[in-house]
Design a protein around this nucleic acid. Structure first.
Length: 286
DNA sequence: CGGAGCTCCTGGGGGC
DNA sequence: TGCCCCCAGGAGCTCC
């Protein structure tokens, strides 16, 4: 599940393979993968052909490649299972290859591979701030130098909902998904259903700081694992697995107190927490 | 309008 | 061995 660290690994890996190159053709093999491109897959391909790409950027889990001429960007969201691969022309098609970009220099292709098709590509206008329009409502992420910690604390405490639900809301703070939410909550010793309006400023600051810290650590480890021709987006396990204290650890002893980690259904997914270190609130929020 | 629930999708894995 | 069902979850959408 690609969250901020995995998307940033992809962005960094992509820089040398896209910046300055001219797209020869964009082949859409599955229409669902361009469903966010409202004018349709043909329009997507037509308008991308011949355009020169610039340096990829990111906010939260959104990644985009600005086009060098005009205020547009190739927007990418990896969803659950999306990958961007750099492959030599002629390499066999991947089973779940959805979009292929060929380049005018006849060099390596960039391929969008996505088993579950929750992710996708679109060619979209960018605003005066350089943000693609569909990203305008996404909050800054904790690794953004301009991330406003105190303002996020204020807005978090103004919510009337459960803490984890708020952490997963990309309009409040972006980049955090199910895995890093559970890890940040474990580190902060806070239960996922803590009502946001009852958090102290210190608790809010702590959980946001832990989210930033755990994602920075994961990024540090992820950055070592891809090679030049393979931009790895295999978010669902891999290198950071060994460092997880809560996510996916149901039944295993808590690394702090030894109490078995518990799992509960939450928001159509799972939450993992230590029932001793992260006691449930008397009045849980949703 | 904020908050909560629904829905899209495919393959791996467990149970029988 | 095969079939059925559950599970993984990001985020736009709809409804209250």
């Amino acid at each position: 599940m690609p969250e901020l660290p995995e998307v940033e690994v992809v962005r960094r890996g992509l820089v040398d393979h896209v910046a300055g190159r001219v797209v020869a053709s964009a082949e859409v093999l599955h229409p669902r993968s361009t469903r966010r491109h409202s004018a349709g897959p043909t329009d997507f391909s037509d308008r991308l052909a011949g355009r020169r790409l610039a340096v990829p950027a990111r906010r939260g889990k959104y990644l985009w490649v600005p086009l060098e001429d005009g205020a547009e960007a190739l927007l990418v969201h990896l969803g659950m299972s999306g990958q961007l691969l750099v492959q030599p022309p002629g390499a066999p098609d991947e089973k779940h290859l959805r979009v292929r970009l060929r380049f005018a220099d006849d060099g390596p292709e960039v391929r969008f591979v996505d088993q579950r098709t929750f992710g996708g590509l679109a060619l979209v206008p960018t605003g005066a701030d350089g943000l693609p329009e569909p990203v305008a409502h996404i909050a800054r992420d904790p690794l953004d130098p301009a991330f406003d910690e105190l303002d996020t604390v204020r807005r978090l405490r103004a919510r009337r909902t459960g803490l984890k639900r708020a952490l997963l809301d990309q309009t409040l703070v972006s980049g955090i998904g199910n895995i890093y939410a559970d890890e940040a909550l474990w580190r902060a010793r806070l239960h996922y259903a803590r009502p946001t309006e009852k958090l102290t400023r210190g608790q809010a600051l702590t959980v946001l700081g832990e989210a930033r810290q755990v994602m920075a650590e994961a990024l540090g480890q992820g950055g070592t694992s891809f090679d030049a021709l393979y931009v790895n987006v295999n978010g669902q396990s891999g290198y950071f697995d060994r460092s997880l204290h809560a996510y996916g650890q149901a039944g295993r002893p808590c690394d702090r107190c030894g109490t078995p980690i518990r799992r509960a259904a939450f928001m159509n997914r799972s939450s993992f927490w230590c029932p001793v270190c992260q006691p449930a609130p008397r009045r849980p929020a949703a």
